[in-house]
Design a protein around this nucleic acid. Sequence first.
DNA 1: TTCTGACCTTGATCGAGATCAATCAAACGG
DNA 2: CCGTTTGATTGATCTCGATCAAGGTCAGAA
Lengths: 249, 249
Amino acid sequence: MKHAPLIAQNHTRCADCPIRHKAVCAYCEPPELAKLDAMKSYRTYQAGETIVWAGEEIEVLGSVVSGVATLSRTLPDGRRQMVGLLLPSDFVGRPGRRTAPYDVVAANEVMICQFIKPQFEKLVSNTPALERRLLDMTLDELDAAREWMLLLGRKTAREKIASLLVIIARREAALNGTTIGDGLRFVLPLTREAMSDYLGLTIETVSRQISALKKSGVIVLEDARHIRVPDYVALLDEAGDDSDGGFIS
Amino acid sequence: MKHAPLIAQNHTRCADCPIRHKAVCAYCEPPELAKLDAMKSYRTYQAGETIVWAGEEIEVLGSVVSGVATLSRTLPDGRRQMVGLLLPSDFVGRPGRRTAPYDVVAANEVMICQFIKPQFEKLVSNTPALERRLLDMTLDELDAAREWMLLLGRKTAREKIASLLVIIARREAALNGTTIGDGLRFVLPLTREAMSDYLGLTIETVSRQISALKKSGVIVLEDARHIRVPDYVALLDEAGDDSDGGFIS
DNA sequence: TTCTGACCTTGATCGAGATCAATCAAACGG
DNA sequence: CCGTTTGATTGATCTCGATCAAGGTCAGAA
């Protein structure tokens, strides 16, 4: 199945996909790649559609090709906390695990390049480099989750918003290979509600703090979803720390 | 070096250590075990001593044998968030990573069974089962971290305290093989300050909420560190969710 | 024995963010 | 074209947990 132009940067593998699979491409050797190609298929999910239900059997295993998916946990009374965000090239599902510990929901229309689970798992256990790659990715996610714990436990609402903006800007820049600097423009891929679920705030607080950052000139709101950052360092400063802002994927 | 009696439950390997190494024992085969034994050494750290500094080279790689260590991140202005707790049998350090993303600090006197880093890493890359084991452990930690994100972002102070008590009770029970039920007694291995760092609260709020739980009869405080739980289900109920309460290790 | 310092508890007050409520703007289907 | 829906903003008020402040308890040192 052909569907989109190739944007791969460091290699020309997985030519069908417009993204580099974080999980596999970097380590694919030609024989493995052929096997991966043979088990690939594509599926799209509508905005709001649940891709994987918490507690249920995991069936999806693959990479996000386009769109944004979220990972979230919910308390019995409905309080919800997002625990991860999946952007293009991020891996969905966990080889070797039977059930998912949280919901995976499409934030907008999401296309996933999916592998056949038993085949992929067999490939993983026969390919030490691939297993190693999965370990590295998981360690990255763990670091990002812990970074986010600092945000949830100790940052103010304003710092939380600024941190999220920095993180989204970084990820968008990484995706399309642009650099970050003054005058930076980007699109928020999340609604105010999704942002509030991510930051442990309410919609109203998110809206108010975005307005406040706008009022102080740290950001320019072209419309609710389009943000411009006249002075990138000022935004970083609002985020409260100088870390590289790990991102939950 | 001999130092403590063997308490291993499912196997009799790593006989020197009074704990089962979560990271390696479950997968050690005799030839690997011999190599591990050859690279083992023990080291103790005083309460409050920093075992690994955030950002610095990781030198320690091993398992906690006794005591409690904490993982924490700090904002430039001093706000601190604990992001993990290491109890006996938990693994310290990350093979394949050069620097630590957070401080590892001894909460009380901690003994660590330490491996020589390059040797251990070499063993890992030659032993797929060991690598697999590390991936599984990391996935567990990731799940626990995300569970904790739900707590930090969405639970009330009272729910946070109850959740922490449940988690500590579970881990203590798992360690010494006892079962959990009504009349359960356990020791808090953390000061109020460490609890507040873990829960994203202040010391005063921790103290007040513990008093409140005591006043409502959910727990009995024998002294500041010794807790008895007359009705375990009531405590679970206070924690706000029925999940298995992942724990950051 | 008293002194000292670490740790914990409790009270009074404050304030950031939640909650409740109204309004607005853009998209969409009739 | 207008009515409805969905998402965002803004205002008024309330509340939970932070902050400021005072004591209490206990182990170890003098």
